[in-house]
Nucleic acid binder design. Structure first.
Length: 508
RNA sequence: GGCCCCAUCGUCUAGCUCGGUCCAGGACGCCAGGUUCUCAUCCUGGAAACGGGGGUUCGAAUCCCCCUGGGGUCACCA
């Protein structure tokens, strides 16, 4: 969801960027820097800026070089674990700064920040005051062997230079805060206001992560026993590497294609995933805001205020009402919010939203519906939980007239029962079809009603056989809408096909 | 394991700051009815929670302590 992430000016920003509530596009638009002089936004281009601050820290003795290899550090960690101790890198008591800085001129090294043992008090807007006392601070790395700053160093410098006053991030960053504060103090920077937001979990209880999509896809691939890449957009070699490395990620486009190939529903994680799944952006915003925050207001009918827009959020949002505990992402409730929002739209609004979604994600729907799209939108609106889901309501109209199957139970119950009463009624009504004018929902329903009245039968006695005849199932939108959507020709064709096919069944 | 954070129905939460109006309210989901040509919608009703134990108090969901539970974090990732 991007909530736990920070948008950092890293080397990887362009490939790994996540559109987070529209912020990303702005940042990308100014990658080279902006009029305030805060850019450039590529770490490689900022190295000179960082270098200056590394120097300062080095001079005041708060930064120092260390020369252990990654393997040596690993060994030290393992040894510490065996002694049941937490591994902490601390500057040796006999550390000789002059010697070390001389040595760093010729040897590969990393730079570490020397944390003092002075307690760090963090004032967090949602958690309150937290004191990180113990001497458990370690001297963390601020510059890697390759000369690039680590995240901890980069955030602190970048935030200062960008004039960042408020840092909102996931609670997973809470333990990093004393490091950042320590760095800020050493560098003489101001400490921004911190607000650590509660984490969001999957219904299973695991942390919601952008890697979840890869995880799901990987599991499906293994399930299917796939050894080689099934699609051209993923090179075989890349595919195999991805299968093996649990931390690797494919591009969204590749994942989407792979999921389609496996008929797998990818979990929605990024804002874009939700859009693809047919959720309105404003609904997602509303829902996510409600995870961990609550306006604490009542509606006139005594229910809680839960549905609101960005304006409301802008006016009422405040840190003090943010929950402290993590929350699980409840798909069912999101779906409910989504359905309500779609249903609350005018027919016209829904039609254009759905059309836009189809254009972007499934143009074939547009082609198949053609001029009937508006009618289909009307039929689908009340039945759609998401824009993606909308097509299901009118699925019957998307297939060829002889390509849908008749549900066996429906046929038995609706058409064949009572010596084929359904088929007889259907046959009787078929003749009336030519006379309905215009062939639109209201007129069609009137005709159905009139026919039933004249025969003194209930609406259902005709409606259900008709529905099964033209859709193959007992479920569809209102009868008028269903028939109108197909049009007169197709309706008649479908009824005739049904009568022909079922004749054999009932005869046998 | 060390450190840090958290703890009300299955889920999201209101209530906790200023203890009594809370035998705990709402929403989603679930169950049972009703309306309707099916589905969906809509309406009515229902089951469902203050993790446990100690305090403080006339009185605790609300304050304090302990336990338990959940989570986060311990990288030359961000």
């Amino acid at each position: 969801m991007g909530v736990g992430s920070e948008i950092r000016p890293t080397e990887e920003v362009s490939s790994e960027s996540r559109p987070t509530l529209g912020v990303d596009s702005e940042i990308r638009a100014t990658l080279g820097g902006d009029p305030r002089g805060v850019g450039p936004f590529f770490q490689s281009q900022r190295l000179e800026i960082y270098r200056e601050h590394f120097e300062r820290l080095l001079e005041m003795g708060r930064a120092y070089p260390t020369f252990e290899s990654a393997e040596e550090l690993d060994a030290m960690r393992t040894a510490a674990r065996e002694r049941k101790e937490t591994f902490r890198y601390r500057r040796p008591d006999d550390y000789d700064h002059a010697a070390a800085t001389a040595r760093m001129k010729t040897e590969e090294h990393v730079l570490r920040f020397h944390m003092t043992s002075e307690p760090v008090r963090v004032v967090d807007e949602v958690l309150g005051e937290i004191e990180f006392t113990d001497q458990h601070f370690d001297d963390f790395i601020i510059r890697k062997r390759n000369g690039f700053p680590t995240y901890h160093f980069a955030v602190v410098v970048d935030d200062e230079l960008m004039g960042v006053t408020h840092v909102l991030r996931g609670q997973e960053h809470l333990n990093n805060t004393p490091r950042h504060v320590g760095l800020q103090k050493a560098l003489g920077f101001a400490t921004p206001t911190y607000a650590h937001l509660p984490l969001i979990f999957n219904p299973t209880g695991s942390k919601m992560s952008k890697r979840d999509k890869d995880k799901a896809a990987r599991a499906a691939c293994k399930e299917a026993g796939l050894k080689a890449s099934p699609i051209t957009s993923i090179a075989d070699r890349e595919f195999k590497g991805w299968l093996k490395d649990k931390k690797s990620q494919l591009h969204t486009e590749q994942l989407v294609e792979l999921a389609a190939h496996l008929s797998l529903e990818l979990p929605e994680i990024d804002v874009d995933d939700f859009r693809r799944s047919g959720y309105l952006p404003e609904v997602v915003c509303n829902f996510v805001a409600l995870l961990g925050w609550n306006p604490g207001m009542k509606n006139d009918d005594g229910t809680d205020v839960e549905k609101f827009d960005m304006d409301f959020l802008g006016e009422h949002f405040d840190f003090s009402r943010i929950g402290k505990g993590p929350s699980k992402f409840d798909r069912a409730k999101l779906l409910s919010f989504s359905r309500d929002a779609l249903a609350a739209m005018s027919d016209g609004e829904f039609e254009s939203c759905w059309r836009a979604w189809c254009e972007r994600y499934d143009p074939s729907i547009l082609e198949r519906l053609g001029d009937s799209f508006a009618l289909a939108a009307r039929a689908a609106k009340l039945r759609a939980r998401t824009l993606k889901d909308a097509a299901n309501a009118v699925r019957f109209a998307l297939v060829e007239d002889d390509a849908y199957a008749f549900d066996a139970r429906a046929v038995k119950k609706v058409l064949l029962k009572n010596d084929g009463e359904g088929l007889n009624v259907l046959d009787g009504f078929r003749e009336k079809l030519g006379a309905i004018e215009p062939f639109e929902p209201d007129a069609i329903e009137s005709a159905v009603r009139a026919f039933c009245d004249s025969r003194e039968i209930g609406m259902g006695t005709l409606a259900q056989p008709l529905r099964v005849a033209v859709t193959g199932s007992t479920v569809s939108p209102g009868l008028g809408e269903t028939l109108a959507l197909l049009g007169r020709e197709r309706t008649i064709a479908r009824i005739e096909r049904c009568l022909a096919v079922e004749h054999k069944v009932s005869g046998g």
